[in-house]
Design a protein around this nucleic acid. Structure first.
Lengths: 359, 359
DNA sequence: TATTAGCACTATCAGCTGATGAGTGCTAAT
DNA sequence: ATTAGCACTCATCAGCTGATAGTGCTAATA
């Protein structure tokens, strides 16, 4: 890995009892969203420890960097380091309820969503709704998608509609202008030529190859080839617009859980920079399974008050994109993690089914 | 008109001087967003009236329902009735600056936006940005759009991609499932049949006619016709999903101008109900030019703190949709009105150009 | 008679106050 | 090693203050 991602380490050994206290504080803060004090913790822990003892332990934990106080007379809250400990050592992804599983399956596998775009949008919306956080999803990069089919449709003497279908079910339309009036018959010939030539190649490769052939045999080929290359070039010059779906932004404003967030504004502004978000989501794709970035571990400054939980989705061969949520650092990891995980799996499954149905 | 739209009337005759005071208060409140008092108004009006006199006039205006006070010791603010007076009697749509005109033209006429969807989205975003309000746009109802072209593309033995292009440049894709394996050649025959049959008919009409022919001559026709009807039926069963584009929602939260809004939440929630918004936008389409709904004049309760300014856009023949903004009632009508108006005009112009370029 | 000066009245706001309470840290006793 | 006890620290809140900006009313005035 060229770029070292900052990740908090929790190698220090803390004895059992201290761990239980820390865990108690974390879970207390997660459920109540209020700083937790020694007295209440003494009760809720039921370990027969007096508040004073708890205070001593808390003091140790503060020294170790697991806890902090907003002000002297308030209880303590966990630091990012504490959450990292919690996620690494304590949380075991517990099972989702059947009901929740069913809900997710219904949405992602609902009929009528023939196109990946629709599927992604409704899944993103679902996840935002379930978690009450903001949900971000990167769509498969058209770049690396495999061509399934390309067609040209003559709309007028100057306009041609390009329809491009990728293996994973994305459909892209583009209207291109021509100077020459090309007949539909001719366009059909061109498209079958391109389809044959570039079957099962990635759009990126195809573009590359087209550019090469334009340079190489500038003069050589016949009219068909010349037009095919010219049209192909235009057709594959797809907008590089990064497609990111963002849902649940209003939760930032209206949800109580985001209350102690410094700047909702900063986050909202960050969401406007789609390509940045895209990169963020698609980074660390090597890692399989779920990835969690807690507070300061996030590269983006405006995310450093939050935790991002994300997972890749894929078809049978390749990772296609990422789906994830951004929430407060004191989110309920115990359920958020499996929800994101499960959703990504079901999403992969649905897309795989769709793309394997071509022959 | 079956449904009477509540619209405030300002028939009462108010003498010249009183009008000037009222106007002063309205404009003062528009620029400062603060209640205006007799003292400051006395200065800014430069009519040589003492605060006391102004107070008397203000008192009269309050009685007439043009002004109100948030509390005793605050200045006065205009009522919806006052804004209605202002818009009807005072505002003369002043010219936009060249600079602004240029900006709008650039965005709407920028190349590469071959498809209406893209055009509408960026125009909506532009208007939200210019006004710093929320901008709403309804897309042309696919229902009433005129068919320009329909094509079927065989993706696999069970999947067919339908591509549907309307005269105003909307492109719709849909993947439909088939039980029978149909060759591309056959599909081409079907599509040319449909194209010929239904050239220049609205999608609504087409669907109607397909349904009729299915009932009428159930048995009669040959395989081509049968398949054509069957495929056509599926193809034109387009999602009736109302397409509304909403941009600038964050202004609701972050813009100072929305400060004295009761419930941003209510508005945001209303925006979720796309079909309601769609109807709202497309109501009163008969009216040509700009429409303005001030506060209580809005049917929707959550809009009654706001003013909506909207205008239709159209191609050479028909009204296609509506573009409008929602802002505080004390918006700067003097500039918002011409901005919306101009944008709608340019939008119409661009779409007309595009759809007239087919032959 | 229309206008205005003067004055009493009222609501908001910022700043201050002291009481309250939750929570800590330390120390000495267990 | 644990805990009870106590002094201490802040944040919060209600209540009070004076300053400010506005009004409505009345009586004087041009």
């Amino acid at each position: 890995m060229s770029k070292t991602v900052q990740r908090l380490e929790t190698k220090e050994s803390i004895d059992e009892r201290t761990q239980r206290v820390l865990r108690g504080i974390i879970e207390g803060y997660i459920t109540s969203n209020e700083p937790v004090g020694s007295r209440s913790l003494s009760k809720s822990l039921e370990m027969g420890l007096s508040p004073a003892t708890i205070r001593n332990i808390m003091s140790d934990l503060s020294d170790m960097g697991f806890l902090m106080q907003l002000h002297t007379s308030a209880g303590r809250i966990p630091t990012d380091k504490a959450y990292r400990f919690y996620v690494d050592q304590v949380v075991v992804a517990n099972q989702l309820t059947r009901k929740l599983q069913k809900r997710i399956q219904e949405v992602t596998q609902e009929g009528g969503m023939s196109q990946v775009e629709d599927l992604l949008i409704s899944t993103t919306r679902l996840l935002a709704g379930l978690t009450q956080f903001v949900c971000l999803t990167s769509s498969p990069r058209v770049e690396t998608s495999i061509l399934r089919r390309i067609e040209f449709i003559r709309l007028s003497s100057q306009q041609i509609l390009v329809v491009l279908v990728t293996r994973n079910g994305q459909v892209r339309n583009k209207i291109i202008a021509t100077t020459e009036d090309l007949s539909q018959d001719f366009l059909n010939t061109v498209s079958s030529f391109l389809n044959e030539q570039f079957h099962n190649r990635s759009l990126h490769e195809i573009r590359q190859q087209i550019l090469e052939s334009m340079v190489e045999d500038k003069e050589r080929y016949d009219r068909l080839l010349a037009q095919a290359v010219r049209l192909g070039k235009k057709a594959f010059e797809l907008e590089n617009a990064p497609e990111v779906y963002i849902e649940g932004q209003h939760n930032l404003i209206f949800s109580e859980r985001f209350r102690n967030l410094n700047s909702a504004r900063g986050l909202m502004d960050a969401f406007e920079h789609k390509s940045m978000i895209m990169n963020l989501l698609d980074s660390a794709v090597e890692a399989d399974g779920i990835q969690i970035y807690i507070g300061i571990e996030n590269e983006l400054e405006s995310f450093q008050d939050c935790t991002m939980v994300k997972a890749q989705y894929s078809d049978q061969n390749n990772v296609l994109g990422t789906i994830g949520v951004i929430g407060p650092t004191n989110m309920d990891y115990q359920t958020v993690i499996p929800v994101v995980d499960f959703t990504a799996r079901i999403l992969s499954q649905t897309i795989t089914q769709q793309s394997s149905s071509c022959d």
